[in-house]
Amino acid sequence: MSHSLVLFTLIVMTLSLILLTIFLYLIVRKRKDYRWKQEVETYKQLYEPILFRHLAYGDEQITPPSSSAQHVAMMELLDHFLRVLANGHVKQRATALAETYFSNYLRQQLYHRRLGRRMNALFYIEDFGLRSLLHELEKMYEQKHVTMMEKRQLLKMFALFRHPHVYEYMKANDESFTQFDYRLILSRMDDKMFAKVVDHFFDWNEKIQYALIDMIGIMQKIAHVSFLRTLLQHEQSEYRIRALKALAEMAFPLETEQLDVHLRSQIWQERLMALRLCARVRKEELIEQIKELIKDPMFSVRSQAAEALLRMPNGLAMLEQIAQTSDDRYARDMALEWLERGRQYD
C-alpha cells in the first residue's frame, strides 16, 4: 500500500510540476506576444498614411518590410484598404505591391505546420489577387495531407484565378463538397467560365447543377435565361422549382401561359415559386388564379399568394374583399395579415 501511495504522490507531483512549467512558458509567451502585437500596431500607424497615398494615388514609394512584424502590419493594412477602397486602380496597385513584397512571405506560410496559418495565407493570397502563386496552390492541392478546409478555399481561388483545370477538380470532388461550396466557387468565375459550366449542365452532379441554377438567379445572369426556360419544361420537378426561383430573383417577366402551368402544379414548392415570380412581375392576367391559391392547403403558398395580390396595382382592395367575403377561414386570416403588412409599408 505505502509503495503505491508514494508512487501516486510522485505522479501527482510530477503532473503539477509539468503544468506549472507549461504555465510559466505560456505566461512568458503571453508577454512576448503582447509586445509583438504592440510593435505591429506601431508599424501600422506608421504605414497607414503612406500606404493610403500609394494605393489611392500611386505617388508614394514604399520601403520594403524587413521584419515579420512589418510584414504583418503592412499586410493587415493592405487587406483593410482593399475592403474599403475597392476600385480597379487600387486593386492593381495592391496586387503589384503584394507581388513584390509579400509573395515570398506568403509562399513560406503555405507550408506552415499549423492549419490556421496556412489558411490565413490563402485568404491573403485571394484578397491580394496573387495569381502568380497559382503553381504553388496547385501543388498544395495535390498534396496527400491537404484538409477539406484548404481544398475548399483552394478551389474557390482556382475559379477566381481562372485555372484551366478547375472543371476537372470540381468533378473529382463529388462527395466531399456541398452545394454551398459550389455556389462560392461559381460566384468567383468570370462570365466565360460560368457559361462553360452552364453548357455542360447535364454532365455535372446534382449538387453542382442546383448550385448553378441558384447562382444564375443570385448573380442576375440574364444571359442564361433561355437555359432556365428549357429547365421549366424538364420532367424533374427540382429543376423547375429552382429555375422558377432564379427567374423570380431576376424578376423576369415570364409569359402568362407558362406561369399558369406552374401555378397549377401538383407540387406545392412549384406553386410557391411561381407565385413568388408573380409577386415580382405583377401579372394582372393571373389574379383569378392567385385568388384561388390563397385557399391553398399549404400555409406558405397561401402566404405567398397574399403577398402576390398585395403587390398588384389595387392589391389592398382585393385583399380587403377576400378578408371580408371569402368562404375560407384560412384565406381570410391570411388576407388580414397581409393587409396589415401592406398598410404598414404605405
Partner: peptide
C-alpha cells in the same frame, strides 16, 4: 491548436 491564429473574420 490546429485552428490557432486563424483569422477572426475571413
Amino acid at each position: 491548436r490546429r485552428m490557432y491564429e486563424l483569422d477572426e473574420w475571413e
